[in-house]
Design a binder for these strands. Structure first.
Lengths: 171, 171
DNA sequence: GCAATATACTAGGACATCCAACGGTTTTGG
DNA sequence: CCAAAACCGTTGGATGTCCTAGTATATTGC
């Protein structure tokens, strides 16, 4: 990676906001910007681990989701809902996973509109390897202390619920 | 937006991890996934506000950065470093902002390799409007309590520093 | 029972991000 | 003082995300 900056650019942005009189929103702005940047860092770590396996994070997420499904299959729209991405993003991911022989499309037995995505044996094997790699290289050394992890899960869980991601009450 | 899911998909993923014996990394996995999803939600809110102004978040960030620079100008590589994105992303953003008359490129006075990005009067005006809109529509109603904001800034600040973003000691 | 509405997936297009490679410019070093 | 190395920005390509629109299938409602 590149040389670290001498100062935190987000802290600087916050100071700029305060200097311009937007004091009340300076802190939330900094928090939101920090989330954006943190996501970027984490995503690049994950992608670096998955790349040698021929996967991207988007494809891995779909593969992992299928591997945990009881039947190893899910309708496209269900996958879209669970992964919280646009249906066309799922189409895109399935296209590539299918081309790699990791999943296959099958018609839904009763609903002609629906397409089922099924994970193949190869897909299952690769999902296992990828999960092991991510566990060992990313999740086990996230850079967050256990307390930080708890805080993040709780803060972001409330946020996502309030944003309409899900309706669970138990947070 | 779509109907909320009955249950938190990230909490489900965490349970899956635990059921497979990856108990030690289940929580960090959940925290990281939550950051990814939260970023997605926040980005879409920001983009929705900027779209009517003809801006994207990437272009807004660059425009805002320039508007805060003393001289209203920055070298490309400096902007790349401060925004923490790849140089080609800056090239892309500048191309579009320039086409819209919001910034202009100028040669560096002493270093022939370097290109300066200068914000135009129009760019300055638009940056003001965009910041006002974001402050009013996003940052002032982030969905995070003041305590959450403090926690996030501190947790993510340490994380970004440890990840090599900057070398500040004062966190 | 059939037209109107809703749902599911996909095709095409706009943007953003990164990486690899290339052509200039500047700095380093022997 | 000139060749080698470092640095800067751009082009081209791969991926991902979303949106809009279009086709096909189901469900509704009169």
């Amino acid at each position: 990676m590149t040389t670290p900056l001498p100062r935190d650019p987000i802290a600087d942005a916050r100071r700029n906001w305060e200097d311009h009189g937007w004091t009340d929103v300076a802190a939330p702005m900094a928090a939101i910007t920090a989330i954006m940047r943190t996501q970027q860092i984490l995503l690049s770590r994950v992608e670096a681990i998955l790349k040698p396996l021929g996967l991207t994070f988007a494809r891995y997420e779909l593969l992992a989701l299928l591997s945990f499904a009881r039947s190893g299959a899910l309708p496209m729209n269900k996958a879209s809902a669970l992964l919280q991405v646009h249906p066309t993003s799922v189409t895109n991911a399935v296209d590539r996973l299918e081309k790699a022989g990791l999943v296959s499309r099958a018609p839904h037995p009763t609903d002609g509109r629906t397409t089922l995505i099924e994970i193949t044996a190869e897909g299952r094997t690769l999902a296992k390897s990828a999960t092991a790699a991510l566990n060992a290289e990313v999740f086990s050394q996230s850079g967050f202390s256990p307390e930080d992890v708890d805080h993040l899960i709780s803060i972001l869980g409330r946020f996502r619920r309030d944003a309409g991601d899900f309706s669970d009450q138990d947070l």
